[in-house]
Simulated scan of single mutants.
Amino acid sequence: MNEKLSIVKIGGNVIEHPDQLSRFVELFSKMEGPKILVHGGGKKATQIGEKLGIKARMSNGRRITDDQSLEVVVMVYAGLVNKNIVAQLQARGCNAIGLSGADGNCIQAHKRPVKEIDYGYAGDIDNINSQVINDLLMAGLTPVFCALTHDEKGQLLNTNADTIASEVAIGMSDIFETTLYYCFEKKGVLKEITEEDSVIKHIDSNLYEQLLKNGVIADGMLPKLHNCFHALRKNVSRVCIGDINMLTPDSNLFTTITL
């Protein structure tokens, strides 16, 4: 049996709150075995951009990344947010290394084709360089990926962090038994959106179809669950969704997703 690998994705709800981030870093640093962290930072990029007089443009919840916006997200994702997380992990004995997809040619992508909407320098992933990532893990390092990829022609691309986490988990599944963790503000997938503890603890393909039909899974949860099942169909062992407390060894209040 292959060694187990944990891939954890965190978003703005953790990054934006110092106490939440500190708690997350503490829990993540204590996770046993090889692990990879993927982070976003869109809220921070919007804040910094506004200070610079660059207003974020969004469509269907996704950032339109023009030239100026790309400069902002590169500064914020790969600089401010990434290095802050790496420094905090180092302080807790986790030998983290901050990366974009361009570093070590780890994540290759192409610029999203223009259809109804031109998303600018948004990247859709083509390939994960699993060998380079594995070399880092075998050297005792913990990769920390920001939400940037590259096209191998010198162009950086803004890429959805949930998708990066999913594709990295898929890419590493030939070497490891991979588990993907999505940490967000809820305790899991909820039966009732207004009831914080109404967590559905296990979802498989059949229940997923029922939940879709009944409208339980909707809005922002739709793309997240799509990424989950895409990963599972590509040999990721399991996916877990919940708040940062699901990383505690004795936690059972989160959603586990399997085929």
Rank of each mutant, 00 (worst) to 15 (best):
V8C: 01
N13M: 08
N13W: 04
P18Y: 02
L21D: 00
S22L: 07
V38E: 00
H39R: 07
G40N: 07
G40R: 06
G53M: 07
S59N: 08
I64Y: 01
I64H: 01
E71I: 01
V72T: 03
Y77C: 11
L80F: 02
N84T: 10
I85V: 10
L89D: 04
G93R: 11
C94T: 09
N95K: 15
I97C: 12
I107A: 03
H110V: 14
A122D: 15
N127V: 01
I128C: 01
I128S: 02
I128F: 05
N129K: 01
N129Y: 00
V132Y: 14
D135A: 12
L141N: 15
C146L: 04
A147I: 09
N158S: 04
T159R: 05
N160E: 00
A165T: 01
A169Q: 02
A169C: 05
I170R: 09
L180D: 00
Y181R: 02
C183M: 10
K187Q: 12
D197M: 10
K201P: 13
H202P: 05
D204P: 09
D204M: 09
V216K: 06
A218T: 06
D219R: 08
M221I: 11
L225D: 01
L225K: 04
L225P: 01
H226M: 12
C228R: 07
A231Y: 08
A231R: 10
A231Q: 07
L232P: 06
R233P: 02
V236P: 09
C240L: 05
D243T: 08
N245F: 10
P249D: 12
F254G: 02
L259S: 11
